[in-house]
Every structure is written in C-alpha cells, then in structure tokens.
Design a protein around this nucleic acid. Structure first.
Length: 315
DNA sequence: AATATCTTCAACCGCATGTAC
DNA sequence: GGTACATGCGGTTGAAGATAT
C-alpha cells in the first residue's frame, strides 16, 4: 500500500530538476541502450545522474541504473527460470518473504525484478486459484508439500536426462551461495556417482501417509531432506510429514491436475486413488474420478486445472 | 477475422537508507 | 547533527503479446 507521506526534500528537488528538462520515459530504444552500454564500458557504472547526462541520455539516473541492472548488464540470464531456481526462490521466500534483492543475490544472473514478477505472476496466481492468501499458512503448506517436492522431482529428472551436467556450474553456485538446506539437496544431486533414486511421485500425495519429502517442522523453515534420506522415508512412511492442509485447499488440490497422469510425466505407479484411504476423508468432496483411456479424469475439473504444474515449471 | 480478456514483464514511483560535506 | 544528493528497494502500472470467445 502506498504511503501518503510527502516526498522528501531531496526527492522533491530531484523531481523538480527532472521536470525542468525534457526527460524521456517509457521503453528504451536501441540507440539509448547503445549509448548507455558504451558509456558504461568506457567509464564504468555508478553516479547515475551524472552518467545519464554525460552519456547524452535524456533519462533519469534511476532509469539508467534500472535499465542497466535489469536488462543490459552482460551477466543477466535470460529465459525461463529453471526448476532449481524456482525451488530456491520458494525456499528463500519462505525464509525472507518479499526481500527480492536479497533472494536475487542467491540466483546469479537473475534480477530482483524478475524474481518479483515470477512470484506475482506464477506463485500468487496459484494462490488465487486455490482461493487462499498467498501468505497464508495453507498456501505455504501447499507449496511445501506439493510444489517443492515436484520441483525436486523435476530437478532429479533433469539430472537423469543429462548426467554430465548433473548440476551445472550455475546451480552449484546457487547451492553454495545458499546457507539453507538446499545445499544438501543440491549436493545430493551433484555427485556423478549418485545412486539411482526411488521415484518421488509418492511425495506429491498428501493424502498418503508417505506423502512429502519436506518436513513439517515449520511453515517458515522448509527443511529439505536430502535424496539419500528420501529412500529412508519411502521405506519408512511413518517418518514423513502428515497432511497439513485444510480440507478446502486439499480438495482444490485434489481436483487440480497435480494428480493428472502425464504420459511423459510422473507415472501412475505411485498414484492410485484406491490406495488412498484418506481420499474420502473430507465428506463434502465433490471429486469423482474415472479411468478413461489410461488417464484419471476428475469430472468437470480437468479442463480448468487449479494447480497446473506445467505453468509453474516454465520449461 | 474481429474483439475481448488475460498474462507477462519492463519501467515507473515513492520511500528508506547511505554517504559526503 | 543537519542537509543535499545518490542509490537501493519493494510495490504498482500499463503496453504488448498471447489466448479465448
């Protein structure tokens, strides 16, 4: 919420000075980008107001700084966020909240703006579709017990598909930069000799007793369990986290395509509604599932998935 | 094909903080 | 300590492209 406080003297002066000249606004042109890039290449960054005028740009120093940091800087990574990066964002956001620049420091080449946009467009959208607040405990539980395990699974799949780049250097950088337990997870992927791991599909089913690879000790502190320990969880289901979600969220999740069986995806082997004693736990559940052409279909709902993981992967 | 609606993301804004004098 | 200015941060906006009707 914007504050109604009056601008500071410094900012008023800055603005009035800006008003005096004809400053350009809106999208940057190629010519402006070139001017800025060449000037910084010769003189370095910083002193943005001075830089703007010396470079011959009719822009504010703030605008130049933003353009450089968010777009022109050579080490900016472009393209979709990888599952590893998404996982790290979720993890770090659970720790620090909307501290975008702090989070961005742990994702080399990604800007705070990009991460903020990712959170608003992808994460908060899912919360809206689940009809819950994105900062509510229910949503955090959903993220922790559904989304994060699936991202871990995606990461693992990537490891198998490209064993030579189990974790590329950037991911190693992320892992080492993070003081969280993500490092453990990343390291568990990093060995070229890592043993074959059990499928993680079971983790995505909160109704199952062995549903989740992420502990439930604290909503705000997601402790990832290294892959090596996940085997133990599979073998000892009682050690994993219990379902934490309230019935509304849980039912929404059930009705979403998180359980949808994808041909190339996560397989049916671990998902069997018949083996889910809690499937009818919530008496008001409207879900009915049928087997159709090898896929489980939740009547009327699949056309409007509430929790579309493919949207989240961005890949 | 035309129009409406939705989604994304670059860019903006106000404010807080840092720094030099 | 006070002032002026620069920089950084997080919230918000709106144009453009994508998708649905």
């Amino acid at each position: 919420m914007r504050s109604m406080r009056a601008p500071s003297v410094a900012n008023r002066m800055c603005n009035s000075r800006e008003d005096e000249s004809e400053l350009r606004r809106g999208p940057w042109t190629l010519e402006e980008d070139t001017l800025l890039t060449h000037y910084i290449a010769r003189h370095g960054e910083g002193r943005w107001n001075m830089l703007a005028s010396y470079a011959g740009l009719k822009r504010t120093g703030k605008s130049c700084r933003l353009r450089w940091l968010n777009y022109l800087k050579p080490d900016i990574k472009r393209g979709n966020l990888t599952p590893q990066e998404q996982l790290l964002i979720l993890e770090l956001h659970s720790k620090w909240g909307n501290r975008w620049s702090k989070i961005a420091q742990h994702l080399p080449g990604r800007t705070d703006n990009e991460i903020k946009n990712y959170w608003r467009t992808r994460v908060q959208r899912q919360a809206r579709q689940l009809n819950i607040e994105s900062n509510s405990k229910s949503f955090l539980d959903a993220v922790r017990c559904f989304w994060m395990p699936r991202l871990l699974q995606k990461v693992e799949q990537n490891c198998y598909s490209s064993p030579s780049s189990t974790l590329d250097s950037q991911t190693h950088a992320i892992a080492s930069a993070s003081s969280s337990n993500f490092e453990q997870v990343a390291n568990s992927f990093s060995s070229e000799t890592f043993p074959p791991q059990p499928k993680l599909t079971q983790y995505s089913n909160p109704a199952s007793e062995h549903s989740c690879s992420v502990t439930s000790s604290s909503v705000l502190s997601t402790d990832f369990i290294p892959i090596s320990h996940q085997t133990e969880i599979l073998e000892n289901p009682a050690s994993s986290c219990p379902p934490l979600l309230d019935s509304t969220v849980y039912n929404n999740l059930l009705l979403s395509d998180i359980y949808y069986v994808e041909n190339s995806g996560y397989g049916m082997d671990a998902f069997n509604p018949a083996s889910m004693p809690e499937f009818d736990t919530f008496g008001d559940s409207t879900s009915e599932c049928n087997m159709a052409d090898g896929n489980w279909v939740f009547d009327d709902y699949m056309a409007d998935p509430l929790w579309n993981m493919n949207d989240m992967w961005q890949v």
